[in-house]
Amino acid sequence: MTECNYFRDYPARTGDRMLFKMEHYLEQYDALLGSWQGRDISFLEIGVYKGGSLPMWQGFFGPASRLVFLDIDPACRALALPGTVVEIGDQADPDFLGRVGAAHGPFDLIVDDGGHKMHQQITSFRHLWPRLADRGLYIVEDVHTSYWPGFGGGFREPDSFVEFAKDLIDRMHSWYTEDDAGFPLHPLAREIGGIRFHDSLVVIEKRLKEAPVALTAQNGKVGRSRRMLEVRGRRSIF
């Protein structure tokens, strides 16, 4: 398998548009998205700023990709490249997000590099997650702002995006509840395939699925059961 260095090498190829990303994000994008290079996908990024990421994403994905960018600053509309769309609106406005999703979704990849405030990141996720396609990725950048009071965050601040993402881990595992009243099965258990925390990045994978199955296999005979999800008072089998 050829190692992908597209993103790590990209800063040396930039033009007059400023690209503003944490350096270690580029290494993570090479690892996460290497197999996506050249694919025709539907893509959404929140946050345009100086427009430096538009040519970066456009050069990575296939020529028939649908690339949509959002920003609250009307001046960013002029930064659209041929083959891209820049929509102007507030990422914390559910009606705006609904219109964008209806017009351009579903998306294979969503990247939130917008205002980085807690209500912005959480509102965007809640309203755009339904517009993410199966096997798609939802990436939130700069989640270190979850520790900054000026952005609505703070260490263990309940309303921060990091704490919100930690709660998604519980929702993903709610198949296995033994407390149906206090910890009921959540619909996101059928939609979240995985959650990865990197330095300042949270990556949430969408994978539509049925209830998990436990396998037993011996001498080529395979058994499948969902009994694990039904029993209570579990004890270790080891």
Rank of each mutant, 00 (worst) to 15 (best):
G89Y: 07
P149V: 06
L19Q: 04
R8Q: 15
V231T: 08
Y6I: 05
G51N: 07
V100I: 13
C4E: 06
C76V: 08
W175S: 05
P94F: 05
K50Y: 13
I88S: 06
W36N: 03
D159P: 01
R126A: 03
E230D: 04
D9A: 14
W175V: 02
L32F: 05
G193D: 02
F164N: 07
G15I: 05
F96Q: 10
N5Q: 12
Y25P: 00
G182W: 08
W129E: 01
E230P: 04
Y29F: 11
P212V: 08
G47S: 09
R126L: 03
I169C: 12
W129F: 13
I169Q: 13
G62Q: 10
R190V: 06
R224N: 03
G182D: 01
R126G: 04
F69L: 05
G194I: 08
H198V: 14
H173A: 12
R196N: 13
D170V: 14
G52M: 13
A189S: 14
E45G: 01
H186R: 07
V203M: 00
S174T: 07
F7A: 14
L54G: 11
V222H: 02
L132N: 09
E178C: 08
E45W: 07
D40M: 06
R131L: 09
Y147S: 05
F107W: 06
R126T: 05
K166T: 09
K221R: 15
Y138V: 04
V48R: 03
P82A: 06
F155Q: 10
Q28P: 04
K206V: 01
G193W: 01
E27T: 15
R207A: 11
S65P: 00
I88K: 07
V86K: 02
E210G: 10
L168C: 04
F60P: 02
S160H: 07
Y138M: 04
V162S: 07
L33V: 03
K166C: 14
P82C: 07
R8L: 15
G194K: 15
M22L: 15
R99C: 06
L109V: 06
Q28L: 14
D30F: 03
G89V: 10
A80N: 06
G98L: 09
A64Y: 03
M1W: 15
R171P: 00
A80P: 12
D95C: 09
F125H: 11
